[in-house]
């Protein structure tokens, strides 16, 4: 059993709970949209029957948050998985092959990085989610797909640049030169020598990226181009904003879920990076 500090255990526990919610939340004994009767409309935190209260429409906040977990976590993991994979492949190849391919890649990364993340994501979402009939609403599943695609595109240059940097520092090492002089194929050198060394750094960044994506998804939802109808944490915040003066607790619930999740992913990213540094230091 590895030795972790208390905050690390908390982070692992919280993310475990979030994963549980997103996988099995629908099995828990409340419906995602738990409509209650008039006398229960807008009750505060810790009311009987509604642990985290309800919003002004009577939606149970705990069940909304649990249902929102699935959407937020799913989008984050999908976008970071896809963006991380594509970005790493591009970044590693660029740094390993050098030359023209590297120049082209770096230029593409710089182009992507020269627009603020959220502006880029917003532009992509708005263009990709346009219906042929502009008066028709875009179905939720398509919005989810568009969000994942847009956030993936936003992540590729960020993660790609990090993968490139990490690869550059490893591809000049003696064991790579040795492998090459022994006649090892480039593809094998990358898989056997580069990837295992670059991977820990990428995993550390991936944790941070999950947090970034969760925040980006929430931001887009607040702006009204993300997930509608309070079906994600950002959507809940967007809806709660309307009742901000009378029922601020409607905002506290998704904010606390969001903040604890991001704190946890950031902390775990730090832990992985610290492990990495100490390993490097020993060498």
């Amino acid at each position: 059993m590895p030795k972790f500090t208390k905050p690390t255990w908390f982070a692992i526990g919280w993310l475990g709970l979030m994963l549980f919610f997103s996988l099995f939340g629908w099995l828990l004994p409340f419906k995602p949209w738990n409509f209650v009767f008039e006398d229960d409309l807008e009750v505060g935190l810790f009311s009987s029957g509604h642990l985290l209260g309800t919003d002004s429409n009577g939606y149970d906040l705990l069940s909304s948050a649990v249902a929102g977990t699935r959407m937020s976590i799913f989008i984050a993991i999908a976008a970071v998985g896809l963006g991380g994979f594509i970005g790493s492949v591009l970044g590693i190849l660029a740094a390993y092959l050098r030359g023209k391919i590297d120049t082209v890649m770096v230029t593409i990364f710089n182009v992507g990085l020269s627009v603020p993340n959220l502006v880029l994501a917003l532009a992509l979402v708005s263009v990709l989610a346009t219906n042929v009939d502009i008066n028709q609403a875009v179905p939720t599943w398509r919005r989810v797909m568009v969000l994942i695609m847009s956030l993936t595109i936003v992540l590729i240059p960020i993660l790609g640049r990090i993968a490139r940097g990490a690869t550059l520092s490893w591809s000049g090492r003696e064991f790579v030169t040795a492998a090459r002089s022994m006649g090892m194929k480039d593809s094998k050198i990358i898989l056997k020598h580069i990837v295992p060394n670059v991977l820990p750094a990428l995993i550390a960044v991936a944790f941070l990226a999950v947090g970034v994506v969760i925040i980006a998804e929430a931001s887009l939802s607040i702006l009204g181009v993300g997930i509608p109808d309070g079906a994600s944490w950002g959507g809940m915040i967007a809806r709660g904003r309307n009742d901000l003066e009378y029922a601020p607790h409607v905002l506290y619930v998704p904010i606390v879920f969001l903040a604890l999740t991001v704190i946890s992913t950031n902390h775990l990213g730090d832990v992985v990076r610290a492990k990495l540094d100490s390993r490097e230091a020993k060498v």
């Binding site: 915040i237 904003r241 905002l251 904010i255 903040a259 991001v262 704190i263």
Partner: peptide
């Protein structure tokens, strides 16, 4: 560290 993990819109709303 804790403050930086709270998204800026959450701070704004609070």
């Amino acid at each position: 560290f804790a403050l930086s993990s709270i998204p800026n819109f959450a701070i704004a709303l609070l």
